[in-house]
Amino acid sequence: MRIAIPIKQVPDTKSVRLDESTGTLVRDGIESIVNPLDLYAIELALQARERLDGETTAISMGPPKAEEALREALAMGIDHAVLATDRTFAGSDTWATAKVLAETIRYHGAPDLVICGERATDGDTGQVGPALAAFLGLPVAAYVNSVKKISRNSITVSKLLEDGEETVELPLPALITVVKEVAVPRLPTLSGKRRAISADILIVSNDNLRLPDSELGLKGSPTRVAKTFTPKATRECVNRTAATAEEAIPAARDLMAFLNDRGIRLSSEASQ
């Protein structure tokens, strides 16, 4: 069984700061990490490999530096890594990203299963997984929260819907996107880290993929960022302190009166 796991290197959004004067992101000194939601996909792939035997390949599109993310996947136990990197890929939106990833996956060899994280924590779109399925012509189950059964020919998963969870059996090859409930990511082992340092990473450029310019990078992207701005927040906040039990009682009373004025009761209808 061949399993492909598209991953992305992202800035650690927990440490992203904004330059208040310009409203732009301060990127200096921001650590790059593997998209945290991809770790669940990696873990699931490793578990499937352990059960079914086969090989796992992490695939990323990004600048040369994205190699670091691939090495982290290798350190967790992923077998192979492929980096699609080319100046012409820069500025890609989700359409163009999915296009390059699809071609890179094909170039490396058709997988039986593609496992994606549900979304990347920087772009937050969740669009690349389903778009990748469309480009690869694969059946897709998105927002998978548990894998019930997997064999060489099919995979049975439960996936999230607004009103419940649906279990479906997909024939393989297929693509799934997974949410964090699906697995608990393992930590890289020392030997894994050692192996990752020297492992070969297959570098793929558009010389290999031969996609037309019109489908690459900014030029190939249907969407454009027109502007960015800092979300404006802030309401008038009524403040009370309740450091002690004595202070808590009047603070709670004020709160309830405040809510009462807004037509909200802190009690269920039944108990009134």
Binding site: A233, T234, R235, E236, C237, V238, N239, R240, T241, A242, A243, A245, E247, A248, I249, A251, A252, R253, L255, M256, A257, F258, L259, N260, R265, L266, S267
Partner: peptide, 28 residues
């Protein structure tokens, strides 16, 4: 607190019992 309408600075566990007391309107 920047997005809140009503903020209470205090420990959530310690504050909860005060909230559970029914609102005595006369007292309020």
């Amino acid at each position: 607190f920047q997005v809140a309408d009503f903020g209470i600075v205090g420990d959530a566990m310690a504050f909860l019992p005060a909230l559970k007391k029914p609102l005595d309107t006369k007292e309020a």
